[in-house]
Every structure is written in structure tokens, then in C-alpha cells.
């Protein structure tokens, strides 16, 4: 067997793994930190382990229905670390400087159409529903579940230059009052 070929073949996966870490670390080192308000629901799942399904509680400008087929841009409107406001732009439009790539971020996106009111229920305007999953350890899950129900929460995220959101921590939006 060709000796140098075997060495190259053995080094290839090691180089690939090292490159994968290098690329991600470099991406994260240049990422900007944002704080985004979230609401949580449907915590924990017996099959997938312990997690919180959160929904971004953004102030949204623009028409959410542009996102009906995922064909829209979601742009952060505030400067870091303010991640509370987003602007929706339709396609085709120029890329925005702080765009969120929801697909690469593992988020689920729904454009919920407006509902007309009934006698019992008031009508709702169209809205953008962007949700994701935040995994927890078994020991942290019960406390987090309770906290999500009682306290406004925020997600500390890193926004990479490619528009990927990387979750850092899920914490209360303000320190608990004494």
C-alpha cells in the first residue's frame, strides 16, 4: 500500500475535524452579542430530552405575510446588544447588515395571517412567529419551566456574520427583586 497515500487519508479526517472547529470558533469570535426577549411554552419532551420551546417576542415592523413562504428577510433593527426589534423586508430586496438566517439558526418560522373578530374573541393582526428549541439538563429543567411561566425571559445570543443565531443562555430579563 502506498505509504504517503495512507498517511494523507489518515490525516484527512483529523484535518477536517480541526477545520470544522476552527471555522466555527472564528465565526463566533467575530459574532455580536444580542439580548432577545422570548416567551416559553411546551417545555420538555419525553422523547427528545429536556428542552424549552421558546418564541421570540420581538417588536416587528413590516408585513409579516411577506414571510408566508419563508421568502422574506428578518433584519435586526437595533444596535447590539438590543435584540428586541426586527424589521421584515420582502424579497427581492437588498441584504440588510444584520440579517437573521432563521433556517441556518434551526428556527421555525410561521407567518400567521390576521383573524377577524367574533362575538367572543377579538380579531388579531397578522404576526410573525419565530420559535426555536433550547435544550436543558435534567436538573435545570423544572426550575426553568417555573421561571419561564412567572418571569419575563431573554435569550443571550451571538449573531454571526453569516446570520446564524447561536444561543448562549436563557435568563430572566431583569434581576429578581429582593
Amino acid at each position: 500500500m502506498n505509504r504517503s497515500l495512507l498517511i494523507a487519508a489518515l490525516l484527512l479526517p483529523l484535518a477536517g475535524l480541526a477545520a470544522s472547529v476552527g471555522i466555527r470558533e472564528s465565526e463566533l469570535s467575530r459574532a455580536e452579542q444580542y439580548v432577545m426577549p422570548v416567551t416559553g411554552f411546551d417545555p420538555r419532551d419525553v422523547l427528545r430530552g429536556h428542552y424549552i420551546r421558546y418564541r421570540y417576542d420581538w417588536q416587528v415592523s413590516g408585513d409579516p405575510l411577506w414571510c408566508r413562504d419563508g421568502a422574506c428577510r428578518i433584519c435586526l433593527a437595533g444596535d447590539a446588544p438590543d435584540g428586541s426589534r426586527v424589521e421584515i423586508r420582502d424579497l427581492p430586496s437588498a441584504p440588510c447588515p444584520k440579517e437573521i438566517d432563521w433556517q441556518a439558526s434551526g428556527l421555525t418560522l410561521y407567518a400567521v395571517p390576521a383573524t377577524s373578530g367574533t362575538a367572543d374573541e377579538a380579531g388579531q393582526p397578522a404576526r410573525l412567529d419565530v420559535s426555536g428549541i433550547f435544550y436543558l439538563s435534567e436538573s435545570d429543567a423544572p426550575a426553568m419551566e417555573q421561571q419561564m411561566a412567572e418571569t419575563p425571559m431573554v435569550m443571550n445570543v451571538l449573531l454571526t456574520s453569516s446570520g446564524r443565531l447561536v444561543n448562549q443562555s436563557l435568563i430572566p430579563s431583569a434581576p429578581p427583586s429582593r
Binding site: 470544522s20 439558526s105 434551526g106
Partner: peptide, 15 residues
């Protein structure tokens, strides 16, 4: 190699 790629996906939240 397979578990390594899965580990990177978990740590760097790649989907």
C-alpha cells in the same frame, strides 16, 4: 469522525 461531527453540531448549534 461521525460522533465528532455530531458533537460539533451540538456545541456550535448547527442545524
Amino acid at each position: 469522525i461521525l460522533t465528532g461531527l455530531a458533537l460539533h453540531s451540538q456545541i456550535y448549534q448547527l442545524s
